[in-house]
Write a protein that binds this DNA or RNA. Sequence first.
DNA 1: TATTCCACTTTCCTTTTGGAAAGCACTTTA
DNA 2: TAAAGTGCTTTCCAAAAGGAAAGTGGAATA
Lengths: 116, 116
Amino acid sequence: MANRMGYLSCLDTVKPVRDAIEVINGKWKLPIIISVMTGNERFTDIQESIPGITPKVLAKELKDLEQHQLIKRVVIEDYPVRILYKPEPYADTLTPIIEALKGWGLNHRRRIFSKA
Amino acid sequence: MANRMGYLSCLDTVKPVRDAIEVINGKWKLPIIISVMTGNERFTDIQESIPGITPKVLAKELKDLEQHQLIKRVVIEDYPVRILYKPEPYADTLTPIIEALKGWGLNHRRRIFSKA
DNA sequence: TATTCCACTTTCCTTTTGGAAAGCACTTTA
DNA sequence: TAAAGTGCTTTCCAAAAGGAAAGTGGAATA
């Protein structure tokens, strides 16, 4: 028997959107990328620029982002050793997503307050 | 003593982005919105249009999306009763986000395959 | 010498998310 | 009459995400 297949296929959009979500999932990845792209380079600075993030979460997310080649961890052999996080060029490709989310978030907040 | 405040503030961007993420968080919300906006109206059709989603998760996410006024649940008093999910106009405002994610996801997949 | 800074790690715990499977009340279809 | 469809809910459970707090080892600072 053939499939029912009564539904409309939306896989052309759903699949790539899911691929993107897999990379930038969670509460923290985009905030971290934004912070690093803004110019924060050191662990403590990144941490302090993002309210509420704990060092454990930050360390884990930084590793994830490095694996996806969105940031790189640079070790400066000095006394003492310094560690810097820099955005990779690939991180720039996320700018349209970040801008779209920022615009939507600003509008959403206005919408919520105008109701209340 | 004054704060260290050595970091660069990125809150102007981080805060609205976080507001947006809070609404569309998780693996499923955007796929469901895409499916409903494509024209899938019935529970089973939405479920079948999104590979891997279970009825439990779909039911819960539909409720969340209804609360955020992104979709509405319409009860048609027929014999038998039919239930339809329709996009609210507010869902349209997510289109730029969806398009940005779709474009990035397509490019990301090409990038991954060209390396391998 | 004591404190602070830096970049984390470790432990413990709670919450959230997700998945598999079954069930249910009803209706339609074969 | 039996099977299948509809729109879910329920139960059980595993994995992932997230948070609080403390610790660590070296180096710089007061």
